[in-house]
Design a protein around this nucleic acid. Structure first.
Lengths: 186, 186
DNA sequence: GACTCTCTGTACTGATCGGTACAATCTCCG
DNA sequence: CGGAGATTGTACCGATCAGTACAGAGAGTC
């Protein structure tokens, strides 16, 4: 048997795309095996906990990416307008301008939410907190900052749903552009 | 064997809840059978096309409900403010103030979108058109009306995702209240 | 070259998948 | 009351599910 020396770091993104495309229940081991090029032996070697562990680690990896590239910059930003623009640019790139779907959102809607409730909740909570903090620092009252940050979270998710529903990625880009104005208004 | 005289009309809503809760791929026939109280014999008697037909008819039923209770009133409304308030009230009730999820949105995000693309797209297209028409009649330019109606579609979907992700139905109610102001602004 | 330890493919498990077949029972209509 | 057609439960189908067992191959170490 050959040894393909697959790294965990190479596998997780592929796993992520499978879960994105088929959801938790739809992502069968056969699909995963095909997408990763790994047999069950390897899969269960890396993830003894099976599908649940795979999904959990994928979520954690996504969370870590957002923590580094989106949340942390938001928290430590000097210029609010610049920070918001950067956040929007980052999310637009991450979601491939609406052609890619949010795995956390997919899990949130499905039955998988129960199993991953903490991770799902945390992701949005930390994003929302970081954004609200920034908006607060830009002069908005904390209640307005809260409401606007919640509006941003929900607009991003909704734009992804609608873009995919109508098969029109431009919906997402339009929503991000409008969100930028709305976040900084007044 | 008894005859429970189950009406198609009684079955569809139950089917809808099963699909809502588990998604298309997650809704197994065993789950459906249990929820409806119907054996496979009855299920396949009513829906010879199996799961796909069930899902298709559920979508059609939902579409019909919205057509009658939301879209049509929007198109024929006299008073825009009143019509929007009615739409928001209707959707808030339908989605049980954020505790219920949108089946069309669930399908849109999953792999089932491909099979039901036309129905999924149509639902949002007709809602968006009806709302844009109304907003246009209220004096907004057609491009602004379009953008705002798109914003409404996406806010509803996003609010449902976020409410479920954070397990906080109030997010949905807040979003609907804010949407009302935003739709009628200026 | 032998000993590990890591990685991998394959064969297998029992359970469950969606779907079919069919006979038994019911309701309705005359 | 006696068919006819609608409705039902159950047994069954092959395929596929998630997961296990395990032997063999690779690489590193001595």
């Amino acid at each position: 048997m050959k040894k393909t020396v697959s790294e965990r770091a190479d596998i997780l993104p592929v796993l992520g795309e499978v879960f994105r495309a088929h959801g938790y229940e739809g992502a069968t081991l056969a699909l995963i095996s095909e997408a990763t090029g790994l047999g069950k032996g390897s899969l269960y070697h890396f993830f003894p906990g099976g599908k649940a562990q795979m999904a959990g680690e994928v979520l954690a990896e996504i969370d870590a990416w957002f923590e580094v590239n989106i949340f942390a910059p938001l928290r430590s930003a000097e210029d609010p307008a610049r920070a918001i623009a950067a956040m929007l640019k980052g999310t637009e790139e991450y979601f491939r301008s609406g052609r890619r779907v949010c795995l956390v959102g997919v899990f949130a809607l499905g039955a998988a939410r129960d199993s991953f409730a903490a991770q799902v909740n945390d992701y949005f909570a930390r994003w929302g907190d970081a954004l609200a903090l920034l908006l607060g620092r830009s002069g908005l009252s904390s209640s307005v900052a809260r409401r606007r940050s919640e509006d941003a979270m929900l607009s991003i998710q909704g734009a992804l749903v609608l873009a995919r529903a109508r098969d029109d990625a431009k919906i997402f880009s339009r929503a991000m552009a409008e969100l930028k104005l709305r976040l900084l208004a007044e």
